[in-house]
Amino acid sequence: MDKFEQAFNEIIEKDLKVEPRDWMPEKYRKNLIRQISQHAHSEVIGMQPEGNWLLRAPSLRSKQVLLAKIQDEAGHGLYLYSVAETLGISRQEMNAQLHSGEAKYSSIFNYPTLTWADMGAVGWLVDGAAIVNQVSLQRTSYGPYSRGMVRICKEESFHQRQGYEIMVQMANGTPEQKEMAQDALNRFWEPSLMMFGPHDADSAHSSQSMAWKIKRESNDHLRQRFIDRTVPQAHFLGLTIPDENLKFNEETGHWETSPFNWDEFWNVIKGNGPCNRERLDHHKKAHNENAWVREAAAAYSSKVETSVA
């Protein structure tokens, strides 16, 4: 072990932060780029399922809140791309990896948003699950990622409240609205639990990430925290969690659920979910059809620079 590696290990051991100029093992760097770019892509692709209802938002207020929320997500994408750039990868490269399928994004965004209640369920469950994960990541060992998470968490908690507010409104609304709310919960419950990733024993990157303190808590641990937090919220809404085996274990103090449909989880990850193709095509289309705009901006700025010189 050389002195650089020793210094790196010491940073990890003492719970200090690794900074962009510090030496780091190549695998640590790669692992971070994979995770952070995946996180950034998730924010950006996540704009689509909500964007699907933006034009149909049923009041001026809900439209402005939803648009502000989607705009925040674009902003989170930007922070995270910038964090990844400190590790020596460009936004163009990350974009190319997204388009080639080499880089992933959270599978949850491959599910369609079918009714307005889904705007509630996405905020409540999807952002709710994301927050549990991101709060934990505030203590990640890579400095820029950790600081980015602190900022993102503040905005995410507002997003979750926005979602829950829609659920409250729908669950207390007309019978049709309540039915929409229950249907949204039915469709998003299990996919949101699977957002935490496979069980610890089946997670390819988990143990190394935990050792390097990139991840601070295991998938199953975070998932359980989310379940325990969310079940009472569903009860408060008067909605039923779509799991007939759901029960509270008095001894452990935790809610227990049925085994998940992991076949579906892996199938969606492999690209066979309801909207995988659509999400990527949408992103590629916006990128490709606007190539001329980026070219014009570049041409103009080089002309202006030349004339100044």
């Binding site: 950006v44 001026l60 439209k63 402005q64 648009l67 989607i70 705009q71 994408g77 992103h283 980026r294």
Partner: peptide
């Protein structure tokens, strides 16, 4: 608002959303 997630790059996407938000607020 129709331009949301359809801009030429992320910064511009946010700029158009911002202007859209101003217009809804003004209305």
């Amino acid at each position: 608002a129709e331009m949301c997630s359809r801009g030429p790059f992320l910064e511009e996407d946010m700029a158009l959303s911002n202007i859209s938000l101003d217009l809804f607020g003004r209305a």
